[in-house]
Design a protein around this nucleic acid. Sequence first.
DNA 1: GTCTATAGGCGGATAGAC
DNA 2: GTCTATCCGCCTATAGAC
Lengths: 214, 214
Amino acid sequence: MDSKYDTMKQSKPKRTDRQLSSEKTEAILEGGMQEFLTYGYAATSMDRVAIAAKVSKATVYSHFQDKESLFVGLIQRLVEQKFQSIFGASEAQVLQAAPQIVLREFANRALDIGVNEPQFLNFMRLILGESARFPQLARAFVSNIEQTAFRKLCQYFTNCPHLKLSDPEATARIFVGAIVHFLIVQEMLHGKDIVPMERDRLITNLIELITGQP
Amino acid sequence: MDSKYDTMKQSKPKRTDRQLSSEKTEAILEGGMQEFLTYGYAATSMDRVAIAAKVSKATVYSHFQDKESLFVGLIQRLVEQKFQSIFGASEAQVLQAAPQIVLREFANRALDIGVNEPQFLNFMRLILGESARFPQLARAFVSNIEQTAFRKLCQYFTNCPHLKLSDPEATARIFVGAIVHFLIVQEMLHGKDIVPMERDRLITNLIELITGQP
DNA sequence: GTCTATAGGCGGATAGAC
DNA sequence: GTCTATCCGCCTATAGAC
C-alpha cells in the first residue's frame, strides 16, 4: 500500500499511442467516471462499471489492466478536462476593468462551478479523500487546477497598475484559499444552514482587504 | 443511498446511557479508528477492525449494530475529541497582545496540527471524501470545528480595539479559509514541492491585509 | 458477553468460445 | 476484441456453543 501507488502504471497497454481511444474505451471511461464519482474508489465494482459502460466485464479488462489502472487513467483525464473547462475559455478582454470587477468575476466563476456542477464537488471529494492512497492524482490536481489559479491571479496582481501589493504571490494564495474554503464549507460539507453567509458578502470583504478600498 | 444516511442510528443499543463505554467498546472504537482513518470507509473490513481491537468479529457486532453504525459513532466521537484538542486549552492570556502576535499564533496553531498530527489529515480526508454519503458527519465537523474557529476569531476581531474591520464575520472566514486551504494544498494534496511557499510568508501577508500595517 | 465456525453473496480477475 | 461462464477469496453478518 505504500510505494505501488506512486509508480505510474500503463492504462492502455493494448494500444499504440498514435491512435485515440476507441468507442468502447470511451464508454468504459464514461461509465467508470459515473460510478467512481458516485461511490468512490473502493465501493465501486468493476461489474457496475461494465454495466454502466454497456460492455462485458471482460471487455473492461481488455482495455485496462486492473481497477487501479482504470481509476488512475480516468481521474487523470478528468483533471485535464476540468482544467480545460475552467481555464480554457480565456477572459483577456475583461482584464482591463477595475480590479473590483475583475476579482469579483474571478470569484463568482469559481463558486459557480461548485453550485452548478454537482459532479465537480464529487470530483473534489474523490481527489481529497483518496489523496493519501493516490498521491499522484492529488499532485495532478495541484499542478493543473490549483497552480493555474495561483498563476493567473498572481499575473493579474503583478500587472495591474492600480494595486500595489507587497507580495502578489501570497495574496493570490489567500484569495484562492478564501474562495475554495468557502465552497468546501458551504457546499461540499453542507454548511449552508449551519454557518450561513451570502457569497457576495464574502467576496466584497475579500476585495476590500486586497484593494484597501471601502 | 439517499435518506438512510441522514437518519441517525443507535450506535450502542445494548447499553443504557448512564454508563460509559466498557473496555471492549473502547478497544473496538480505537481499532476501528485506526482502520477507517487508514483505509477509508468502504475499504475497511470488520475482520480487520476486530483484529485491531483484539476481539472477535462477533464481539464487534454485539457492541455495534453494523459497519455503518460503528463508523458514524466513531467519527462523531472523533469530531468531539478533535474539538477538545484544538479548542479545549483556552489561550485567553495572550489575547491582550498585539493583533499581529495573536493572529500569527492562531495561524501557527492551526497549521501545526496538520504537520505534527498526520492522523488529523486522514481525519479530514475521511470527512471530505465521505461528505456526500455521510452528510451528518460533514455537518458535525462544520458545527464543531469550522464554526468554532469562525466564532473565536470573529469575537477577537470584534473586541480588539486596534482593528476597525467593516465585517469581522466575513474577515474571520477569509482568515480561516486561507489557512485551511494552505494546509489542504501543501500537506493533504502533497503540493509542497509543486507550489512551494513558506508558511510564514503566507501568514505575514494575511496579517498585513487584515491589519493594514506593513 | 464472548468466542469459533459458517452462511451467503459479491468482489476482482480470467479461461476459453466465437 | 468481445462475449459468457467461472474461479476463488474476502466481505458483512449471524448461529450456536460456552
